[in-house]
């Protein structure tokens, strides 16, 4: 293991780059809530795989505060697992040998090495985008059909892919209809590779918490909530998708069955539809609207 660490740190030094600013802000309420959930996930002595390691903040947290025996992790950005290892080496040098970075650019767990590693883990954790990319071809057409306007993204920010996912590419997954195709793809892959593993996912509840539970149940997991919090809608994420979903439901008789959940206040007492939230934001982009985030654990159903 010593040789592995030496060699990987050498690679990190060659990379010689700072953690991208968007990788993870440890004080971000999404991160804080996710870690609250991870602390309740019973990871002591467990082998954990994190899909999307970001800066490595969650890895250090799971090793230091959750007592995980081993954490493995990958990211679409091939720089991040090595930078995460560097972070762990800095904040928890005694634990760095218990983190194994999975090399390369890894989408979900879609490389042979990642799949092989996932077969032996007790838990897979992730926080994945749940909003279609406004530039996605299928989404563009859906938006146009429902809202009679193009889904124009005003500013393409550096962490665009941290907010959005390519919707068309996950159209084979039924819950893609609700922006959950990427999460469903992960559940199915984990189910196939590691049927014994629990899955802990961090969700925005804008599409409604009830359907998040349905996502787990439909994929043969028993869901339970580990943590939740109401947060301000991130200004970098366009919520037109939720508005289009509400528009699509009008006139079907099922308007009350697919209800997007936003709030006008941080306490979550004044409920807004996505359409109402979007109108407020369009009128004044500095307006704060809120939604719940929730950490859900899926235990494999018998």
């Amino acid at each position: 293991m010593t040789m592995q660490s030496d060699s990987t740190l050498a690679t990190t030094a060659r990379v010689g780059e700072a953690v991208p600013s968007f990788a993870f802000d440890p004080g971000d309420p999404w991160t804080v809530t996710f870690q609250t959930g991870l602390a309740r996930a019973g990871l002591t002595g467990r082998r954990v795989y994190e899909v999307g390691v970001g800066s490595g903040a969650n890895i250090a947290f799971m090793l230091r505060f959750c007592g995980a025996a081993m954490v493995l992790g990958s990211d679409l950005d091939p720089r991040l697992p090595l930078l995460a290892q560097q972070l762990v080496a800095e904040v928890a040098p005694d634990l760095v040998n218990r983190f194994r970075p999975i090399p390369g650019s890894v989408s979900l767990i879609d490389t042979p090495v990642a799949m092989g590693e996932v077969t032996g883990v007790d838990a897979v954790v992730a926080c994945l985008p749940q909003v279609p990319d406004p530039d996605d071809a299928l989404y563009t057409r859906f938006h146009l059909t429902q809202l009679a306007s193009a889904a124009a993204l005003r500013d393409r920010v550096a962490d665009h892919l941290a907010h959005y996912y390519p919707w068309t590419a996950f159209q084979e997954y039924p819950f893609n209809a609700l922006g959950l195709g990427l999460n469903e793809a992960l559940l199915r892959r984990v189910r196939a590779c590691a049927p014994q593993a629990q899955v802990v996912l961090n969700f925005g509840c804008r599409i409604g918490k009830r359907v998040l539970f349905a996502l787990f149940e439909a994929n043969h997991y028993r869901p339970e909530e580990l943590a939740s919090c109401i947060v301000r809608q991130h200004p970098g994420t366009d919520i037109s998708f939720f508005v289009a979903v509400e528009a699509a439901m009008r006139g079907t008789g099922y308007e009350q069955d697919v209800v997007c959940e936003f709030y006008a206040d941080p306490a979550g007492s004044h409920r807004l539809s996505a359409t109402e939230a979007k109108l407020l934001l369009d009128a004044d982009p500095t307006t704060s609207v809120y939604h719940e985030i929730s950490v859900l654990r899926g235990n494999p159903a018998a």
Partner: peptide
């Protein structure tokens, strides 16, 4: 397709 699978969902 390129998918970022980290720190998503904002």
């Amino acid at each position: 397709p390129a998918v970022r699978t980290q720190s998503g969902g904002r």
